[in-house]
Write a protein that binds this DNA or RNA. Structure first.
Lengths: 194, 194, 194, 194
DNA sequence: CATGAATGAGTTTTCATTCAT
DNA sequence: CATGAATGAAAACTCATTCAT
């Protein structure tokens, strides 16, 4: 019954509503309602809606980061490392569709663009899961295991299909099981590797 | 004599503003303003904002379709056909960043999801550029030139990186020249081909 | 193919639309459309919507006046004269529901109140059917055939039920045939006569 | 402590403005202004303008119902009962001209017609003052004290003049004192009774 | 600290009227 | 004269944010 419990309620409610209806389909009053708190209470924890949205993003990202690193072994070959990360990420999205849809909403918005800019330009201390991939790709390129592309292109080749597949699965356009996931991530690897 | 001149102004203004600020960041009044037109004038050409948005989508799609088919030769090998389409599409986006960003806004919205659903389920007679890809992929799979994935996955492997790269170029995170484009689309082909 | 033909078209269209949808449900553009003329054309014949509305009222009133006087014989006894007028009026409304509904719309509006005020205060040259009733009632009172009420009250006793019945018939709440009309107007007479 | 104080302000303001200028002459902003309230505040109490209008009607009707039943004695003769109800109603309208004009606006509108239809078809459980009259008239007819007319016609004969007189008084075309009211309602009775 | 009623600027849409053709 | 595209003021309604309780 500690204080920040209400904060969590707000975060959860916001995630659900924004994931489902978008930023503009989730008024503060509705979030408060769903969270079981007063409308004004949200402003105790988040200065305004923008801050809430950005904060929410950080929390989702953090969760994903943790999942990615779970069982990640730097000493394994590039291919295996990539497959591990790719499958873990895709599985995470499939198991947490709200998180995925929230991220999509976020990236497709002024907030998202700014954050990505910072990330790519390397402005930031810790960069979440990004850094693992960045390191993997940089090494992969320098050791001539992966194609010699700018990092951004490699990200596109790896994440582009992955996000598209997650979206299609969540919207019900395909049904991804473990076998299909494995084969699909292998296909991504084919795009990247030399 | 050029009657629908104002209509064009509206279309251009809407495209610009929505591409830049999203649907909710582009009020009708602002569109009218930018188009140099009275607020009510928009409604002579478009029943309401939804119709304007959907119509705009159709026009952009049509332009892309035309570009894709330009120089497309059904008799060429799969690889070349794919490279042609991929490069043409990526170049189009790079040369028409507003169109690209508009499409992104559109797809990431209730409108877009509905349209995609119809498209995937094959609801429409003519499906724009989609059909060329669909045919290419279906044949590619049946002739064992491409990996045996559901169509939706192949789309993800092909378009996922492409769209991501277009976005990154437009946002200034990479600079794609013709050489890089060619290599990148080849990489996509690697992801798809057997 | 004379000029005022278009004027008639406008009048007819306006009557229909206003009767059916009220003043606010009948935009000028819709009236023009229904009349088969351009929107601007209406303004050749009527300075603005208010003028159109008022003019329309006058025309309807005139038609009714003509019907009332048809077969009206000043030399007949009061009762018969009243029954004649009452039945004629009620029948007119039933046969011309658009006219009736238009009048109702008109009376229940700023226009209507002003016109009634003028009428009751006797400001006007010819007063349409009003004058016949006025004369009938004034004589009826002075010859002690009717109750000694102010004219306005007699009008209320005579027209109140009549209009209510017309409305109910037109809305489908009763079905008035000739026999019922006759009996109903007799009942009105009972209210008025000494 | 008096929470719904603002609600009352809105109700009062809406009643005044609509009574005076009609539904279309009473914008929400004007109502809010007159109520001394923010524009959005109205929507905390009434979902939209239609709801406000309908709710307002219910409240007025309820007040009238209460007044009608005050001192109404079922055991008295029909004539006395009718005179009681008629006089009470007419007096109410004269003393509450805003309520009367509001009702007129309401009845002469899509809302009103729908409600009347329901009422005549007996859709509602409690029908406000209507039921008293309905019962009175049904008994009056069956006991051959009143003319054998359909209920709707009897209503027309009773209310038609009454409403007309109320309107004329309120608009200043007659001045009804208690004596005149009594005589006028007697005249209505003459129209109804056998 | 928590609440939620109140606010008012901002959004979409309508429509009487004008005026260039 | 006739037209109908263009206008823009005005209307209903929403929602992030504040503040008295």
């Amino acid at each position: 019954m500690t204080k920040p419990e209400k904060r969590d309620d707000v975060v959860r409610a916001a995630l659900e509503l924004i994931a489902e209806h978008g930023f503009h389909g989730a008024p503060m009053a509705m979030i408060a309602d769903r969270a079981g708190v007063g409308a004004g209470t949200i402003y105790r924890y988040f200065e305004n809606k923008d801050v809430l949205i950005t904060e929410l993003y950080r929390e989702v990202e953090e969760k994903i980061y943790a999942v990615l690193l779970e069982g990640y072994a730097t000493e394994k070959p590039f291919r295996e490392r990539f497959l591990h990360l790719g499958k873990a990420l895709l599985r995470y999205f499939i198991e947490n569709p709200l998180d995925f849809r929230y991220l999509e909403q976020f990236h497709n918005s002024p907030y998202g663009v700014a954050i990505r800019r910072d990330k790519i330009l390397g402005k930031h201390g810790k960069n979440g899961g990004c850094d693992v991939f960045r390191e993997l790709f940089e090494q992969g390129v320098s050791q001539q295991v992966m194609k010699d592309f700018p990092l951004v292109i490699l990200f596109a080749l790896a994440f582009g299909p992955l996000l598209a597949m997650a979206r299609d699965h969540i919207l019900g356009f395909v049904s991804l099981d473990d076998a299909l996931i494995a084969r699909a991530i292998e296909a991504c690897w084919d795009g990247i590797r030399r």
